[in-house]
Design a protein around this nucleic acid. Structure first.
Lengths: 120, 120
DNA sequence: CTAGACCTTGTCGCCGGTGTCAAGGCAACG
DNA sequence: CGTTGCCTTGACACCGGCGACAAGGTCTAG
C-alpha cells in the first residue's frame, strides 16, 4: 500500500503520515524506487494514532501504544505503559475540567456583576 | 509611571505591556525623551487585561472591556459589547467542558477495556 | 514522446501569549 | 568620563499538529 492509499484508508493526509514517521511512530518499508510501502499492520497503527490524537493525546503519549501493537498485542492499550498514559491523561483531563469549571464560575460572576451594575 | 514600574505594579512584564500596546489595548503618553508614561487609569486597564486573560479571553475579546473603561465606566464589563463577549465566552467554555467530558468518557472506556483485556 | 498522477525531500507559515537577546538612547551618580 | 540602570525598537524562538508549496523522480496510459 502506497502512502496516498494509506492516507485515504486511514482518513488522514500524506503529510501527516510522513510526520508520524519522522516522529518514529510509523515504520514503512520502501519499494525499489524509494516509495513508502505500508502493510495492514501499519494501517492499524495509523488508525490507533488517529484515534488517540482525537482523544487528546500527543504524539509522544501515543508512542507506547504503537510499541504495544507492534509487540503483537491485538490492541494498543494492552500494555502497562499505555495504561499508565491513559491514567495520567485522564487525571490531566480531570484537572483541566476543574479549571474550566472555575473559569466558568468566574465568567458567570463577572456576567452577574455586569448585569447588576447596568441592569438594562 | 514608567513601563518597568507599571509592569511590577500590574504583575506582568515590560514585554507584555508593549505587546498590549501594539495590539491597541494600552495607550501610554510619551515623555520628552520618548519613554512610555502611564497614569493610574492605564494601570487599571492593564489589571483588567490581566484578569480577563487569566479567565481565558484573547486580546481581541478584551478590547471592548478596555474601551468601556476608557469611556469612563467604573468597571470594564458595564457595556453591552463586554457583556456580549462574556456571554459568548461562557457558551464557548460550556461547549469545551462538554467536549472534555466526552473525551473523559472515551478515556475511561479505553482504560476499562485495557484492564479487561489484560487483567493484571 | 508526453501528459498526468503518483511519489520523494525540504521548507515556510499558522496560532498567540511570552521569553530573550541585540544595539542603541538617555539619565543619574560617582 | 565611565558605569549602572532604566528605556527604545526589532527580531528570533517556542509549542504541536497541520496545510501548502517547490523541485524533482517514477510510473502508466494514450
Amino acid at each position: 500500500m502506497l502512502i496516498g492509499e494509506l492516507a485515504e484508508q486511514a482518513g488522514t493526509s500524506t503529510r501527516m503520515l510522513r510526520y508520524y514517521e519522522a516522529h518514529g511512530l510509523v515504520r514503512p518499508e520502501r519499494t525499489a524506487n524509494g516509495y513508502r510501502c505500508y502493510d495492514e499492520a501499519e494501517l492499524r497503527v495509523v488508525r490507533e494514532i488517529r484515534g488517540l490524537l482525537a482523544v487528546g493525546l500527543g504524539l509522544d503519549d501515543i508512542r507506547p501504544f504503537v510499541a504495544c501493537l507492534r509487540a503483537g498485542n491485538p490492541s494498543g492499550d494492552a500494555c502497562p505503559d499505555s495504561v499508565a498514559v491513559l491514567r495520567r491523561k485522564l487525571a490531566e483531563v480531570d484537572d483541566y475540567i476543574d479549571q474550566l469549571g472555575a473559569v466558568r464560575r468566574q465568567l458567570q460572576t463577572q456576567l452577574a456583576h455586569a448585569i447588576t451594575v447596568r441592569p438594562r
